[in-house]
Design a protein around this nucleic acid. Structure first.
Lengths: 220, 220
DNA sequence: TTTATCGAAATAATCGATTATTTGACCTAG
DNA sequence: CTAGGTCAAATAATCGATTATTTCGATAAA
């Protein structure tokens, strides 16, 4: 969905869409919270029409729930849904990585190395938002040459859903360290063209990451 | 996405969304065609705001393409994309059916029998739109108890995409007959709780159906 | 002949105001 | 007291008009 809108002077609706999307992923609005349209208009300094268009897109994308005549709500969070999202990510990203390892060219290898390098640096030297961006880019780079546009689309969508949980979770340095090590391992396996093992590690990575994310459900 | 909007007095935007979705699936607008907003307003007798909201939803859903400052276009059709959609359907619906066979209860069995019965009757005695509705319902009933909301969501979305091709294709009685026979076979295997074989038949069914759909790409 | 530029017409996006619906407090009948 | 009903305030949805951008034909320059 992110690149559904083509280039060209960004319209107010697409600017507000991206801002709202980021704020939703970062947990600025609480789960289940009702979004007052006139309040949002004041917050983002934008007219009603583009704002409503952005909200409609977000609802169709799955980050908001729309009830006729009752406006928009942030989606609820539940451990059950996190399990569902995790299982889907394992399935889809695992498959995509297998294909990417088979189809990826030298350019892909370079991109992958670069993405991991930037991510590693950012882990110690950049603010969280910067790291989040590079983390998304790394995982995207990993599966990019899988050859299926629809697979990539669903993966991105699930990634956004997953991040709503993960970004809400408290820090857990030990798990984070193991997750970072897996990033490196994935790069190595990808370059070695070991599709089978790469898939296994990615699936473990997603499961481990879901353990971090699950901590967000155990908050008050 | 179809049930994203909850009950309650349908709003103009959601009514127009559903109408447009049906018309897009039925090929009322040509692939790649530009949708003039003011023309649509006249056609559907609706104001600009709800119309634009519906178009935004459809773009986020993947039935339209939106370019900033240049309005909305119907998505193009291509054999390559049909292959992608078909492969994704095989993967996702195949997995969903396995799960459904494992989890489905007696109520599911009844629903399945009923859905197939209605579909079979409609094949000879109902207009095409009626058959299309029942056909969607049958395939939905098949995988409904798979236990994963996201899996079902993606399956529905892919089904809509697939139907853009299939409904455009010319009749092919021989293939249609084999496809109908597979519906019966799927019901039998589901009731017999033969998950493995049911999955195989469903994947064959989707592939065979894509052969029909592919005929739409060979038109002028 | 081709390419570039300008400007009017067409069309998309946005705004401000209006209408419709829901919410919740208050009241009354049972 | 409680259930149901009424009404006013709050909020969502929609409309009509305005603004911004693109498109395309006509003209001029290379």
């Amino acid at each position: 969905m992110n690149d559904t809108i083509k280039q060209g002077g960004a319209t107010a609706a697409s600017r507000i869409y991206e801002m709202l999307r980021q704020d939703l992923l970062n947990g600025r609005y609480g789960a289940g919270e009702r979004l007052s349209i006139s309040l949002l208009r004041d917050t983002y300094q934008v007219g009603l029409s583009p704002l409503r268009e952005a909200l409609n897109r977000l609802a169709a994308y799955g980050l908001l729930r729309q009830e006729n005549q009752r406006g928009f709500r942030v989606l609820e969070l539940s451990p059950e849904e996190l399990v569902d999202i995790t299982e889907m990510r394992r399935q889809l990203e695992g498959r995509a990585l297998e294909l990417a390892v088979q189809h990826g060219d030298e350019e892909w290898e370079s991109q992958l190395l670069a993405a991991n390098h930037r991510l590693t640096r950012a882990a110690t030297q950049a603010p969280v938002v910067e790291w989040e961006l590079l983390h998304s880019r790394f995982h995207n780079a990993l599966v990019a040459p899988c050859g299926s546009a629809w697979l990539l689309r669903f993966i991105t969508q699930l990634h956004d859903q997953f991040d709503r949980y993960r970004r809400l979770a408290p820090r857990h340095d030990e798990l984070r360290h193991r997750l970072d090590a897996q990033h490196q391992e994935l790069v190595d396996l990808a370059l070695a063209r070991n599709a089978r093992r790469a898939r296994e590690v990615l699936e473990e990575h997603i499961t481990l990451s879901s353990e971090v994310a699950m901590l967000s459900c155990e908050q008050v």
